[in-house]
Design a protein around this nucleic acid. Sequence first.
RNA 1: GCGCCCGUAGCUCAGUGGAUAGAGCAGGUGCCUUCUAAGCACUUGGUCGCAGGUUCGAUCCCUGCCGGGCGCGCCA
Length: 553
Amino acid sequence: MTPEQLADVVRAAVSAAVARGTLAVEVPDDVVVERPRNPEHGDYATNVALRLAKAAGRPPREVAELLAAELRATGGISRVDVAGPGFLNITLAKAALGQIAVQAVTADAAYGRTDVLAGQRINLEFVSANPTGPVHIGSTRWAAVGDALGRLLSASGAEVTREYYFNDAGAQIDRFARSLQAAAKGRPVPEDGYAGAYIDDIAAQVVAAEPGLLERPDAEQLEIFRRRGVELMFAEIRGSLAEFGVVFDVYFSERTLHESGALEKAIARLREQGHVYESDGAVWLRTTDFGDDKDRVLVKSDGEPTYFAADCAYYLNKRERGFDKVVIMLGADHHGYIGRYKALVAAAGDDPDEHLEILIGQLVNLVRNGEPVRMSKRAGTVVILADLVEAVGADAARYALARASVDQQIDLDLDLWSRQSNDNPVFYVQYAHARISSLLRNAGDLGLTLGAATDVDVSLLAHPRESDLLRAIGEFPRVLSGAAELRAPHRVARYLEELAGTYHRFYDSCRVLPLGDEEATPLTTARLWLCAATAVVLRNGLAVLGVHAPERM
RNA sequence: GCGCCCGUAGCUCAGUGGAUAGAGCAGGUGCCUUCUAAGCACUUGGUCGCAGGUUCGAUCCCUGCCGGGCGCGCCA
């Protein structure tokens, strides 16, 4: 019996008491059971009596006693105690608890998937680094977290499109093109330009691909440097992301918005809604009507549209493509944009709380030898995704970035990470999986298999360490759905560390395979199922984080 | 000045109103002739920044203050 099933049983007990007339309350639809910290408090506990006491007009413990009587008459439950102020502590029958292992193994890759977000069409935008340089460390965090969140939302039943928006129009790209041109001609880096080996590299590639380029008219040169440069830079970005295990469904070019007339259309729509005005020769959106600090310019007095105008067009484009939830992940240095984004959604006539979700993540600080590393392009100390992967490997990098809450700044110690030791919890989790894989291989060598689900007696899993492990495995679906709803992939990582620890403790006190000349027993088979179930959860959980579950280490 | 995030063990951090606040690392003591010791057991370590408030119950919610980070452009 999984905790979800038990929660249903508890709710049924409330209904039964109400039907019997012993309890006069409205049956709550959000009954939950939780895993008590203290093992003396049973397998699961619920506070439902405490919550119903006031409505029932009776002391919590009295309500608890009523419900305990109902629950004791239910199959699969071996014991119910009323404790403390009115908690119900429930102990499952061993067979019911053991069934969790069978369910996990049977469901295999589907174990943990739920439908809590079914029916939602979500557009998840993250990274979206402009193709003027390699993906830096900050964006790498969003690559790890965003990708994990995408997998998490999918696992919870949502229909997810991962999207990468890139700016290939406007002044920033012009500066990029001028920087390439300068590098190709051996001239110094232009004002506000980009510098670095990658600029020289790309410039050389563009010149090689376009013979006679430097003899052509200046405007023509710049156009070619722009187009070819963006192409090459973007290929590099996609390559490094792919190496990191992150692939997007859609790579969306800002330029296409300009070329399709989407900006004009968006401004026209906002104007129709009555929120656009002109002042000082510029076109403005009255975002202050919707809680923003100040109004925002859509078209500058020189006639050029702002980046924000493109944002408006882009948002409307996503809505036109049928997404009912637009999720954008941004760094903390962009948190000031929430106000204007929310306002634009409201100005377009949508509900800013329903249709737009902006996730803000704090910045990553780099530390080396205990000293903060100042990021400087000129000093060449900028750290990029590819460097990080080279230093610690994609698995450790992804795991470490995804295991912290996005609300927390990360101090990333390059020395610690490059040591690639067990300082990093990813090894602890991966080791548990490798250990189980090895054990199952050995079992196979002995001719031992799981056999049919109907032939295993999981009620034999009665050791405290076995019960701990079963309860931990039973948590997994709730961990995934909870992490998806809270947009908190780090919860999955923390859970896996706990599960790995629970497995190691089980392994230490419960021998699985027969020793020496001993024969395999029904307990051997039950324990193999338990091990296989643990492996399933470790695999599925690591898959959510985009981290490999090795068979050997 | 205004806004967002953070403040929990020596360090890095979990903890969606519940019972005695946890993990990893670091420190100490043990455990490998049979399933992976990248492991396990025991142990050291806390005024959950401070002060009020709401609640049967607050690390969690509200208010104020202190400290740290990041923002506040007709830049992108």
